[in-house]
């Protein structure tokens, strides 16, 4: 009883345990896992990260003429598991992880447009494969 009264008095004058969120930033742990960063010059286009990503947040589309790949990343699908960072071969190390979380954005590649990218990623690779086949036959 005495102890409870003492605790109650103490709590009356102590600061709250919660933070004043919108006016104060929530504390960030430097070990926290966050968004995936991509460095294009280092990439060897092995597409291992696309294969391994559980939610399919990394997609590559292929150009139908130059056969070049383009990297697409959806930060809202990403689950920050860093499976792609580990899949990235030692000869490249193009992917890395920072502790920033996905910010609110008006990126036009999200929502419905992301489905278009997913579709394009599948279709362009099949199309390029066939184009290459035709070229090979022509040359031989």
């Amino acid at each position: 009883m005495l102890k409870a009264a003492f605790n109650a008095l103490k709590n009356l004058f102590s600061t709250p345990a919660t933070i004043d969120y919108p006016f104060e930033k929530s504390p960030k742990n430097k070990e926290a896992r966050g968004l995936i960063l991509f460095e294009e010059p280092k990439c060897i286009w092995c597409l291992k990260c696309e294969d391994v990503c559980p939610p399919g947040a990394i997609r590559f589309t292929q150009d139908r003429e130059s056969f070049d790949y383009t990297y697409h990343y959806n930060p809202y699908l990403c689950i920050y598991c860093s499976e792609c960072v580990r899949a990235c071969p030692d000869s490249a190390v193009a992917l890395s992880q920072c502790n920033e979380l996905s910010p609110p954005t008006d990126d036009k590649n999200m929502n419905d447009n992301w489905f278009k990218i997913e579709k394009e990623a599948e279709e362009s690779k099949i199309a390029v494969k066939e184009l290459k086949k035709i070229k090979k036959e022509e040359s031989s």
Binding site: N29, A32, Y80, C81, R86
Partner: peptide, 28 residues
Amino acid sequence: RELVMEVQEAMTGNRIQFDYVSIGGVNK
């Protein structure tokens, strides 16, 4: 409980969905 949550964040990188265990070992 917040004490444990902080430990979990420091150890695995996430507070709730840890994604800490992968086939063959652990991630961090």
